[in-house]
């Protein structure tokens, strides 16, 4: 036993590893650990922010799962949002990245143009703008009227039947970040491999499927995982544009969590919701990580390339 621990201590990787993660680890301990455990504690309390938390055991969790229709609604809305928007955005970002990676005239200008919506993010101005684009008398509806002669009088973002769909479309439209990461990944693929395949007479589709995709898989994996996590945590887009309305049609999980915490002053309940989300997302993410050995190709594990 003693010998193994000594061996363990003599492992140079131990020191190198901890030296490299030291800044991050220090930050975790100093800035994150207390807030994280404090919120875990709060999830078992009744805490209205203004007075001391009261321990109530599992009451918050019990209420969530047995007596809160809005919680159920927020789960449904969020699941639908994630299920549709994450794969769509991923495919879209990948397709555009692959396109922009080709030698098209003005590719550099195009990259900037395509990234713009993401740059503009969620500023006040953008909110007003979306209303103008997809409002009743917005640009989209008048476009449909003048080009196709279709009369539409739907306020896309605020109508109960289209609000969630519009938010999903918006999230797909802001694919810039994922696209940029894909582009960076594409650039890392050695041109020599693709050239070799080209010489062998492989078709473009074949090259993309057999060379590009496998070599890009670590980055696809990243975008998928972050897409899932980000999707479940979606907040600002909804908060800014719809505030969860009309009548809870876009009540994302975190919007409801925030509403509980800072509007209704049920911070304990909000914290409990946060930890339920953490549990659910971590299970899902763990499954994705598990599946990665089937489809993600890492150079560093020693597998040889395609």
């Amino acid at each position: 036993m003693k010998r193994t621990s000594k061996q363990w201590l003599r492992n140079p990787d131990l020191y190198a590893g901890y030296a490299f993660i030291f800044p991050w680890l220090l930050g975790l301990f100093v800035f994150s650990l207390f807030p994280i455990f404090f919120s875990l504690y709060l999830s078992f309390t009744d805490y209205d922010i203004l007075s001391a938390p009261q321990w109530i055991g599992f009451e918050n969790f019990k209420e969530m799962f047995t007596d809160d229709p809005r919680f159920v609604k927020s789960v449904k809305v969020t699941l639908l949002y994630v299920a549709v928007s994450v794969p769509l955005r991923l495919c879209f970002a990948l397709a555009v990245a692959a396109l922009l990676n080709m030698k098209i005239k003005g590719a550099r200008a195009l990259r900037s143009l395509y990234y713009l919506p993401t740059l503009m993010g969620g500023s006040v101005a953008v909110i007003v703008m979306w209303g103008q684009l997809f409002g009743i008398n917005g640009a989209f509806n008048s476009f449909m009227r003048s080009i196709f002669g279709i009369e539409i009088s739907i306020s896309w973002i605020t109508d109960p039947s289209t609000a969630l769909g519009s938010l999903i479309a918006l999230s797909v439209w802001q694919f810039g970040s994922a696209m940029l990461i894909f582009l960076a990944g594409l650039k890392q693929i050695p041109a020599s491999l693709l050239e070799a395949a080209l010489v062998d007479g492989a078709s473009a589709a074949y090259r993309f499927r057999r060379i590009t995709l496998p070599l890009l898989s670590p980055v696809i994996f990243f975008n998928l995982v972050m897409g899932i996590i980000g999707g479940f945590k979606v907040f600002s887009e909804g908060m800014i544009l719809t505030g969860g309305g009309p009548h809870d049609q876009t009540l994302f999980y975190v919007i409801y969590l925030y509403e509980n915490s800072f509007r209704f002053l049920h911070m304990g309940y909000g914290s409990a919701m946060a930890w339920v989300l953490l549990l659910a997302v971590s299970i899902l993410t763990a499954l994705v990580f598990r599946s990665s050995s089937l489809w993600v190709h890492y150079e560093s594990k020693g597998e040889r390339g395609a």
Partner: peptide, 9 residues
């Protein structure tokens, strides 16, 4: 119409 009112920013 409610739709118009809902767009008031």
């Amino acid at each position: 119409p409610v739709a118009v009112e809902s767009e008031i920013k």
